[in-house]
Simulated assay, not measured.
Amino acid sequence: MTLIAIYNHYRERGEDGCTDAALCPHSLHQADLLRAELLDIMQRIELPVSAPAFPDEDCILNVTRALLSGGFLKVARDVDGLGNYVMLSHKHVATLHPSSVYHSRSPPPAWVLYHDFSISPDNCLSVATEVLPEMLVEFAPQYYLSNLPRSESCDLLMDLRDQLQDQSLFTVESEEEEKEEDKELCCLQ
């Protein structure tokens, strides 16, 4: 989300705003070119394009879902409430990079999607986004339910999946009962 805010700052102020905010204009120009290329592809294949609504909550949620859909292998869970994260696919322990907006947050996010992991004396996760475990079950169920190494995190996700399935079955049954009631009402009229 920070990167989107930086990009929007660049779009609003141009290269002159980069100096004030200590941003690299070349990198942001490259991001602008990439965005234009993606927009062109979307228009050619006739995908609907809407104006960005950042920082609208729905927009942020959709961006998080998109990131998680493509990067679900890079998820970590805080195991002690102190910001010590276990990466789900490798079981390495790491902390958030000191430059992360979540680094000094108390309590730290319980689950994060990260972009980079640096092996160093302090093993850091960088470019992190807070995610909800429900999103993991929704967007990457095959991986997390079949291939995730057995761990406490895996068990938590399996339990969550079972809870969501039970709620889903209850909702479907309730909707079917409502439809039956509606049919009866229609017959009576």
Rank of each mutant, 00 (worst) to 15 (best):
31 A>L: 08
123 N>P: 02
172 V>H: 10
159 D>T: 06
53 A>F: 06
85 Y>M: 05
9 H>S: 10
132 L>A: 08
65 R>D: 11
76 A>F: 03
33 L>G: 11
83 G>W: 03
53 A>E: 15
87 M>T: 13
187 C>Y: 05
92 H>T: 11
74 K>N: 15
135 M>I: 00
62 N>T: 05
139 F>L: 15
107 P>Q: 06
170 F>M: 06
17 G>M: 02
61 L>S: 15
170 F>I: 02
55 P>K: 07
102 Y>W: 06
178 E>I: 01
178 E>V: 00
169 L>Q: 11
178 E>T: 04
93 V>N: 07
83 G>H: 08
153 S>W: 00
17 G>I: 02
173 E>N: 06
50 S>P: 02
108 P>V: 00
13 R>D: 05
65 R>M: 05
1 M>D: 10
30 Q>F: 07
126 S>K: 01
146 S>L: 07
32 D>S: 13
154 C>H: 12
64 T>H: 07
145 L>V: 03
136 L>N: 05
147 N>R: 14
2 T>N: 12
123 N>A: 07
150 R>A: 15
188 L>P: 06
147 N>W: 12
167 Q>V: 04
174 S>G: 04
40 D>P: 00
143 Y>E: 13
144 Y>I: 07
22 A>H: 13
25 P>Q: 05
10 Y>A: 02
89 S>G: 03
118 S>D: 15
108 P>A: 01
117 F>R: 06
48 P>N: 06
81 G>W: 05
86 V>C: 08
86 V>P: 00
92 H>E: 14
171 T>W: 06
3 L>C: 02
129 T>C: 10
13 R>L: 12
113 L>V: 01
100 S>L: 13
53 A>Y: 07
4 I>G: 00
181 E>D: 12
139 F>K: 08
128 A>G: 03
59 C>D: 10
96 L>K: 04
26 H>F: 11
138 E>A: 08
149 P>F: 05
158 M>Q: 12
164 L>W: 02
97 H>T: 02
85 Y>L: 06
51 A>I: 01
85 Y>T: 03
138 E>S: 04
18 C>E: 01
99 S>N: 09
151 S>R: 03
186 C>Y: 15
156 L>A: 14
150 R>V: 12
83 G>S: 10
96 L>S: 04
28 L>R: 00
113 L>G: 01
6 I>V: 09
182 D>N: 11
64 T>N: 15
71 G>Q: 14
109 P>E: 04
136 L>S: 02
176 E>W: 05
186 C>R: 14
188 L>I: 12
80 D>A: 05
15 E>R: 09
40 D>F: 07
157 L>C: 01
85 Y>K: 04
168 S>M: 07
32 D>C: 08
126 S>C: 02
4 I>V: 11
